[in-house]
């Protein structure tokens, strides 16, 4: 799960070394927290949130495969 978010985020930011993804167990399943350099935040969100939305779609697919739930938070 973490690898998926890292793969995408590192490929669209200007400072890939500052990409950090942490996993936390929440009440509703796994919470993925994505942290990037301040200037890169817009890139992982995308125009009208489309990048974040596409990442969430793929996270849902992967989570469903593993029979659980996961959410993405951009912090």
């Amino acid at each position: 799960m973490k690898e998926l978010v890292e793969f995408i985020a590192k490929a669209i930011v200007n400072e890939p070394t500052q990409v950090q993804v942490t996993e936390e167990e929440g009440e509703d399943g796994l919470i993925l927290k994505l942290q990037v350099a301040p200037d890169d935040k817009g890139r992982v969100i995308g125009k009208q949130g489309r990048v974040a939305q596409a990442m969430r779609t793929l996270i849902r697919v992967l989570a469903a495969k593993e029979g659980r739930r996961a959410v993405l938070e951009i912090v």
């Binding site: 489309r50 596409a54 990442m55 793929l58």
Partner: peptide, 11 residues
């Protein structure tokens, strides 16, 4: 899902 994949590949 396919749309999301295509979009991300483009970005």
């Amino acid at each position: 899902t396919l749309s999301s994949i295509q979009y991300l590949v483009n970005v």
